[in-house]
């Protein structure tokens, strides 16, 4: 469970103080697929990075399974991050490593002694192969990321994020660089991982259509504040804020296209 309370984040620039996040309160239950939705610049990227402390909050608390992580430093912080998977808009795969060695990367970092099965190259590669099997890319293990399509690259990134058996996975605009059909297949994969492995997903996106497909709960963020939160059905059937309605209107235009794509499958 992730509990975010009174979270604030300010950036000090030459032009003055910028409030990226203002008094954020959220509760994400185990097994949720939680969507954080907003326009670019709304603060959703900053918010999701406060969950693995890639961004240090200015004030407030983030608790994961009851433990306040905002004070974590050094090894404790690295240990926390290794238990949270993350995927990115531009996949962020290591270009000079093979697909297989991208997936072994998080396993190579392990600080948990030398006894485990990840201590040897063979052990790590065996685990990576299982994961590539899971995302349907077992036969691409020895290729390089530049030889893969965008959808395939994101699958590799998902396998990499799962390497350390995380209980939480953060998805930062994971489908925004993909076409509609690939988006649907990636979202299906994320949903399967959530169902079969029980991984809690925090998914940030600017697209309500994406959120609608996979999320059971949604929070809408605008100018650093949560303007709406609820179950996916609630938010879609009865949007409370102007920002949500605006997003919905824009989405209804692209939704038609998405439906057509799905009907074609």
């Amino acid at each position: 469970m992730i509990e975010i309370e009174h979270l604030n984040k300010t950036f000090t620039a030459r032009s003055g103080v910028h409030h990226a996040l203002s008094d954020i309160n959220l509760r994400i239950e185990d097994g949720d697929v939680f969507g954080i939705i907003g326009q670019s610049g709304a603060g959703k990227s900053t918010l999701v990075r406060c969950i693995n402390m890639l961004e240090q909050p200015t004030s407030g608390t983030v608790r994961i399974d009851g433990a306040d992580i905002t004070g974590y430093r050094g090894r404790q912080l690295l240990g926390l991050r290794s238990r949270i998977g993350m995927i990115f808009q531009n996949f962020s795969l290591f270009q000079q490593r093979t697909v297989l060695n991208n997936v072994t990367f998080p396993l190579e970092l392990s600080r948990e002694g030398r006894g485990g099965k990840n201590a040897t190259r063979e052990g790590r590669e065996a685990r990576a192969k299982e994961l590539l099997e899971l995302v349907g890319l077992a036969d691409h293990a020895d290729r390089y990321p530049s030889e893969l399509s965008g959808g395939q690259q994101q699958r590799v990134a998902i396998a990499r994020a799962l390497a350390n058996e995380p209980s939480i996975m953060l998805c930062d605009e994971a489908t925004s660089a993909l076409d509609t059909r690939t988006t649907v297949s990636i979202l299906n994969l994320l949903r399967d991982i959530n169902k079969n492995l029980g991984v809690t997903m925090v998914l940030i996106t600017h697209s309500l259509a994406v959120a609608r497909m996979v999320c059971n709960r949604i929070a809408v963020i605008d100018e650093g504040r949560i303007v709406e939160e609820g179950s996916t059905e609630q938010v879609f059937s009865n949007p409370q804020s102007a920002v949500t309605r605006e997003l919905l209107h824009f989405d209804s235009l692209t939704q038609v296209q998405a439906d057509e794509e799905r009907a074609g499958n």
């Binding site: 991050r81 970092l109 953060l170």
Partner: peptide, 9 residues
């Protein structure tokens, strides 16, 4: 950033 997110030192 990706490497950091996996807990790399």
């Amino acid at each position: 950033e990706a490497a950091q997110s996996f807990g790399a030192s």
